[in-house]
Design a protein around this nucleic acid. Structure first.
Length: 213
DNA sequence: ATAATGATTCGCT
DNA sequence: GCGAATCATTATG
């Protein structure tokens, strides 16, 4: 059980386009209980949207269906976890109705519960922002791996869940270009589809600010 | 069957 | 700042 905070329902993940959901997810809580009692939670502070078929930066660009991208076509609220550079497991939430391959990459969190466990998993001091300020870092800290690819995030029985949370009074979002775009993504690499909570120390510094809300 | 590549991270200079 | 680490996935032969 996730405790006092309520889980975000499946309908949320298809009620808007992925870019809007990427913004709405900022401030919500990423919860994991990988093994019984091993609870870790963090506030989502940085996200990126990917939207097939037009988005060339998306794995499912052109609605390409492969054994890996198949998960992106699953029902909304599904976890898409894949291996990057052979080393890091990156965590995404599938959005949009089934057979529409949209997803949100979680890029950074602010640690809340189970920080000692995160530090143990990361072999790092619990106070460092480097504990969780990157997509491959936070999955390791929270115990998320490719074993969780395809699981349902909208179930109370899942080891990974997304929970509602009140936004801070001074809550503000900053948008900018996505990171890690290779040359073949062309103009898509410049879309301002990366979002972070303004002023939060657990996000990386802005390279280029495009819009603010 | 083989080869290229990446939504990254870390350690060293 | 730069380059290595490291392997699943993908395309191609």
């Amino acid at each position: 059980m996730a405790g006092e905070l309520s889980i975000i329902s499946r309908s949320f993940y298809s009620c808007m386009d992925a870019v809007s959901i990427a913004r709405e997810l900022l401030g919500t809580i990423l919860y994991t209980e990988i093994n019984p009692g091993e609870i870790t939670t963090g506030r989502i502070v940085e996200t990126e949207a990917y939207m097939a078929p037009e988005d060339l930066a998306c794995h499912a660009r052109g609605n390409k269906r492969t054994s890996r991208t198949e998960t992106m076509f699953a029902r909304p609220g599904t976890a898409y976890v894949y291996k990057c550079y052979g080393i890091h497991d990156l965590f995404n939430l599938v959005t949009a109705p089934e057979n529409v391959a949209h997803a949100i990459l979680i890029r950074a969190i602010e640690p809340l519960k189970g920080i000692d466990l995160m530090a143990t998993r990361r072999k790092m001091d619990r106070k460092k922002v480097e504990l969780v300020n990157g997509p491959g870092k936070l999955t390791k800290a929270l115990g998320i791996s490719t074993l969780h690819d395809g699981i349902d995030l909208a179930s109370e029985f899942s080891p990974i869940q997304i929970l509602k949370s009140e936004k801070a009074p001074n809550f503000k979002i900053i948008a900018g270009p996505r990171v890690g775009m290779s040359h073949h993504t062309k103009h898509c690499g410049h879309y301002p589809w990366r979002f972070r909570i303004s002023g939060n120390r657990y996000t990386s510094l802005p390279k280029e600010v495009r819009y603010e809300w």
